[in-house]
């Protein structure tokens, strides 16, 4: 026994392992972590480098120009249209998807008959795995024609709001349609995370509300929703991140044109990701750099969204009930 104790002390206390096996293994794992950092740094460096080159070649303001002609003489390109398209379609998607996702999550956790709830949750989990190109295919072939009728109706009855006034004829390949398709795409992921959160509300809080004579909705309003608030936010941010970066579904459904229009039902527009996918093939060197610059802007936006989500969750910790 005397021989094992000193050995034990050494291998347990030292962070710098002395055994060769320990050294190799910890070196390997640390090396993997460093590899990841290197990749991240490489991404940042290369993208920024080419972005700087691109912007320096841009003869107009990168952020406010409404045109995309980096191959021209002089090169003229700007991301205003792309920013508008990305933000607007994502907002439409969130406005539709978040309430519906909360509703479905509540349905699975509190309203569905118990035997239905488990398979339902399973199916929604699977739906989150459907590749986006397939959503794009279905959207282009089915959703667009179906929405034509809805667009007409919106134009007729809500056209007095500038947004729903359809000024251009043409199929429903608009930012609005893209928003709806994105909503359908991000629905499963927001629902899944939100559902997990709702299921984790301790039964005793729900029982406390019930014992006071609350109806089912009141129990949800008093115990479940407040407890799950930060979870709902983080789930929504996950969905938003996906909507912002979605490429193929948008590329297939949106009728590409480089313009900003407040008439959301009109075909046309562009998003960051869709623009890159559409234009990279025929782009020359300047064109590629310009696209890379727009990609970096998109990346920055998604970083901001994720960071904001984390900050919100951190701030609400005191009232989240997680400590209770």
């Amino acid at each position: 026994m005397a021989t094992t104790t000193p050995e034990l002390k050494r291998s347990r206390s030292a962070k710098s392992a002395t055994r060769p096996g320990d050294r190799i293994f910890s070196g390997l794992s640390r090396g993997s972590g460093i590899t990841l950092l290197v990749i991240m740094a490489a991404i940042a460096v290369f993208l920024s480098y080419r972005t700087v080159i691109a912007i320096s070649k841009d003869s107009t303001n990168f952020f406010t120009t409404f045109e995309w002609n980096p191959a021209g003489d002089p090169p003229v390109f700007g991301i205003a249209v792309l920013a508008f398209g990305t933000v607007v379609s994502s907002i439409v998607a969130m406005v539709i998807a978040v309430p519906v996702a909360i509703g479905i999550a509540l349905f699975i956790s509190h309203y569905a008959p118990r035997r239905l709830a488990k398979p339902l949750a399973y199916v929604v989990d699977l739906l989150a795995a459907v590749p986006s190109i397939i959503y794009g295919l279905w959207g282009a072939i089915f959703l667009v024609p179906y929405l034509a009728g809805l667009n007409e109706w919106l134009d007729q009855y809500l056209g007095w709001t500038y947004v729903f006034d359809k000024a251009n004829e043409g199929p429903a390949r608009s930012l609005f349609t893209v928003g709806i398709l994105l909503a359908i795409m991000i629905l499963p992921i927001i629902t899944n995370v939100t559902r997990e959160v709702f299921l984790q509300v301790p039964k005793m809080h729900e029982e406390a509300a019930l014992a006071l004579g609350a109806t089912r909705w009141e129990v949800i309003r008093m115990s479940v929703l407040p407890f799950g608030r930060s979870g709902i936010i983080s789930a929504s941010m996950l969905g938003l991140g996906r909507a912002l970066g979605e490429t193929m579904a948008v590329a297939v459904v949106l009728s590409p044109s480089f313009l900003i229009s407040g008439h959301l039902l009109d075909p046309g527009g562009g998003t960051f990701a869709q623009n890159i996918a559409a234009k990279f093939n025929e782009a020359n060197e300047y064109g590629r750099d310009a696209l890379i610059a727009s990609g970096l802007v998109l990346f920055a936006i998604t970083l901001l969204v994720n960071g904001a989500a984390r900050w919100i969750i951190g701030r609400r910790k005191e009232y989240s009930g997680a400590a209770a």
């Binding site: 005793m204 609350a214 608030r229 009930g321």
Partner: peptide
């Protein structure tokens, strides 16, 4: 439940 109140084994004030 409005007329018959209940206090539970583990204290459960609403945390939020």
């Amino acid at each position: 439940r409005r007329t018959v109140g209940m206090v539970f084994q583990r204290p459960n004030p609403f945390p939020t």
